[in-house]
């Protein structure tokens, strides 16, 4: 099988090979375009996130996929599930808004809590931070797809698996001819 693959590559001339490289590049760039397009449509810097912890169980488990929107004109309200970033932590957190205070000039501060945690999130925030504000929010959870995110978790935990998948895809695209 492998022999025939290399046979294929050998039989291609230079022009055909470059053509395949270009179409591979097109696939990569359209994937990026879709991601950037989603960023524009949803207003969120990260429109799809994978749940990494069990703090929202039994609603969300590790490896579930969430679709986010972040429209500035839509106000944050209590009971919504928000994804937020805390200074000094790389990984965004997915938790529910527990209480909220909105001033006359439109500034909002709110406190979050994980459904599966017994206390609110003040212990998770940066030192001395008591409230979240709008600028901490990455997005609001709007859609849910279970398990799908496990693939990316495996990829991050086992880099060999990631490279194997990427190599397979690259070989397939380069060699495949319609």
């Amino acid at each position: 099988m492998l022999d025939s693959v290399f046979d294929d590559v050998k039989r291609m001339n230079k022009r055909q090979f470059i053509y395949q490289v270009l179409s591979f590049g097109m696939i990569v760039s359209s994937a990026l375009m879709i991601w950037k397009g989603l960023m524009v449509v949803t207003g969120s810097e990260s429109p799809i996130v994978v749940v990494l912890s069990g703090s929202m169980e039994p609603a969300f488990h590790r490896g579930d996929l969430l679709f986010l929107t972040n429209y500035p004109e839509e106000p944050v309200r209590v009971g919504e599930i928000v994804v937020f970033k805390v200074e000094g932590r790389d990984i965004p957190i997915v938790h529910r808004v527990l209480k909220l205070h909105e001033k006359n000039n439109g500034t909002v501060k709110f406190l979050t809590k994980g459904d599966n945690n017994s206390v609110d999130d003040r212990g998770l925030y940066a030192q001395g931070q008591l409230w979240l504000t709008k600028k901490d929010v990455v997005g609001r959870a709007r859609g849910f797809l279970p398990y799908v995110g496990m693939v990316t978790i495996y990829m991050n935990e086992y880099p060999k698996f990631k490279f194997a998948v990427l190599a397979c895809l690259a070989v397939y695209v380069l060699v495949h001819r319609e």
Partner: peptide, 16 residues
């Protein structure tokens, strides 16, 4: 007077 909107969750429950 301090805030034009206050929302506080007092109680919640998960029903499977």
């Amino acid at each position: 007077p301090a805030n034009e909107l206050n929302q506080v969750v007092l109680w919640d429950k998960i029903i499977l």
